[in-house]
Computed example of a mutant assay.
Amino acid sequence: MSLTSPKPKPKASGNRGTPPPRTPAQRKAALGLDRGGWFLLLPALIPILILSVGPLLYGVSLAFTDSQSGRTNPTEFVGLTNFADLGHDSLFWDSFRIGLVWAFCVTALQLLLALGLALLLNQNLRFRWLARTLALVPWAMPEVVVGIMWRLVYHQDAGILNATLKDLGFINENVDWLGSLSMALPAVIVVGIWAGMPQTTVVLLAGLQNVPGELREAAALDGAGIWRRFTAVTWPAIKPVIVAITALNFIWNFNSFGLVYVLTQGGPGGETRLPMLFAYEEAFKYGQFGYAAAMGLAMIAVIAVFLTLFLRKRLKEEAA
């Protein structure tokens, strides 16, 4: 009986699974599809370029000029002069400090209160649909309407807040909430939290609904309490959502304008003059367009640096 050696198995090719190269006709067809896709995007891209990118580039260019209102002389390029003046402008840095206090306080308190409200609305409660609808009311109201409403609430003589506090015995005299140097900024922060909390609640509620209920049930069967289930199961699952909405809220809050303008117009004594209000006054009250554009560009740079550091830290934590 002769023994025959088994046939060697063919070696697997390194290009196994690689699609064959496309023919010139196929490449031409794909290129035509790509061009067709860009053509379909044009109706959406053109308004963005005209209404967003164009004004942004024009504002950046103004930051390097001495553009002013009512001047008969042509606008001239001044380089970094506006930014050098910003470095010595104590009023701008005061407004920047106020803006940071406003943005940090409103963003942090919005997150805490919205997280609690989202956890509550995620429970199987009666009339949950009605509570979710009512939670969106502040979000549906324009900033001007919110500002006027809260000005009436804070009114020194006819406001419901002073009347309620006096009836409860907490105060003896009416408080000028929006006209006091010590109370104006906290009062405005409360309005900012109330107005912006619904959008944070909606985002967090969507994140909570994506957390598998089986994980919480398994943790409960293992004897974990409410706090342990939240820290071990719920928080890690919604942490990416929290990072995203916190970064967006900080940008929106730092760039706030309409709400604070209606409430206090930056007063009293500049105690609520946010950076955007300061830039608005420089541009449209004093006519310093180039200087105001430099302010806006400086704020964009600072916020970009802050968000880069914040997101990098969070991404490192996620990777670890």
Rank of each mutant, 00 (worst) to 15 (best):
161 L>M: 14
129 W>D: 14
152 L>V: 06
292 A>T: 04
54 G>S: 04
156 Q>H: 06
259 L>R: 10
118 A>H: 10
319 A>T: 13
51 L>G: 03
144 V>Y: 10
316 K>D: 14
310 F>T: 04
178 L>H: 13
254 F>K: 00
21 P>Y: 04
96 F>V: 03
189 I>V: 15
299 M>K: 02
246 T>I: 07
74 P>S: 01
299 M>N: 13
128 R>Y: 07
177 W>L: 04
109 L>C: 07
12 A>C: 04
92 F>L: 08
86 L>K: 05
86 L>H: 09
4 T>G: 03
44 A>C: 11
189 I>Y: 06
182 S>V: 07
54 G>E: 03
235 W>V: 01
225 G>V: 08
174 N>Y: 14
162 N>G: 04
84 A>C: 01
227 W>R: 06
274 L>I: 13
178 L>R: 02
203 V>M: 06
9 K>G: 00
319 A>F: 10
118 A>T: 11
37 G>P: 02
28 K>D: 01
1 M>E: 14
216 R>V: 09
267 G>I: 07
52 S>N: 13
215 L>W: 15
8 P>R: 09
248 L>G: 05
74 P>M: 01
31 L>M: 13
288 Q>V: 03
262 V>C: 09
304 A>T: 15
15 N>D: 10
149 M>H: 09
97 R>A: 06
196 G>M: 06
189 I>S: 03
240 P>G: 00
114 A>K: 03
308 T>P: 09
